[in-house]
């Protein structure tokens, strides 16, 4: 999903930068508030950022015969809500743009918009929706991470199609072209990301019950009783 340095026309690069900036600023505020009010969550915040670091470095082969990488943003969005993920995702993208020449500074706004904003929000939205329907936690986590991953690549396809519409078939033609490169490749990787996120969440449930309860991922005892009562 990394649009390479210089590969978006200046007007598009600026527009995506302007669109992303408020989310990142808001995210920085949420992050500082979280750290100030709950210093004990710093470690788990670090772990969420680390998960994105690992997953976005893993380039995996896919069914289309090309390689791509997961994003790792679903976990942090589920744990700490999407605004905080906007910051952690931006840090990851900056690291890659500056050190790896992967992505770029001029395309940072567009890449942040897809990976650190739309992905986390879409994944979080699906997670919340499924939780409301009393779907088991690990299933909601899987689909949250799956959607966060896949939607990121769909946004990248839209961004490129907007910047480079096909001369004959226009925006939709280009969308099909970029979509077949990104979105189709990404489907099995999004499944992988969902499974990896479930593994980490299972480990967290074992090791950090208190933290997950405070963050509202695990329900409190009374909540569980209520649910049981409803089930009966």
């Amino acid at each position: 999903m990394h649009i390479a340095e210089g590969f978006l026309p200046p007007a598009h690069a600026i527009a995506w930068g302007v669109a992303s900036a408020p989310f990142v600023v808001h995210g920085v505020r949420s992050l500082t508030r979280e750290v100030r009010e709950h210093p004990e969550s710093t470690l788990l915040l670090g772990a969420s950022g680390a998960f994105t670091f690992v997953l976005s470095a893993l380039k995996l082969p896919s069914v289309t015969g090309s390689c791509s990488h997961p994003t790792g943003t679903g976990l942090g969005a589920i744990l700490f809500r999407p605004p905080i993920m906007a910051v952690l995702g931006t840090i990851t993208l900056l690291f890659q743009a500056l050190l790896l020449a992967h992505g770029g500074l001029t395309t940072l706004g567009a890449n942040v918009f897809s990976m650190a904003i739309v992905g986390p929000w879409a994944g979080y939205g699906v997670y919340r929706l499924l939780r409301r329907w009393d779907v088991p936690l690990m299933v909601t986590v899987f689909f949250g991470a799956f959607v966060a991953d896949l939607s990121t690549y769909c946004v990248t396809s839209v961004q490129l199609a907007l910047a480079f519409p096909d001369p004959s078939s226009g925006f939709l033609g280009a969308l099909g072209k970029f979509g077949s490169i990104f979105a189709v490749t990404q489907i099995p990787l999004a499944v992988s990301e969902g499974l990896l996120t479930v593994i980490v969440m299972r480990l967290l449930v074992q090791s950090s019950k208190g933290e997950l309860t405070r963050l509202g991922v695990l329900l409190t005892r009374t909540g569980e009783r209520k649910q049981e009562a409803v089930a009966r």
């Binding site: 200046p10 020449a101 001369p167």
Partner: peptide, 29 residues
């Protein structure tokens, strides 16, 4: 098994053969 990102760059140059990236990375491995 090339990277999808690189394939997208190729697709861009197919759609718009005249497109020249207007900025290059500050540091490249």
């Amino acid at each position: 098994f090339a990277g999808a990102d690189a394939e997208a760059e190729t697709a861009i140059t197919e759609i718009e053969p005249d497109y020249e990236p207007w900025f290059s990375p500050l540091h490249e491995p």
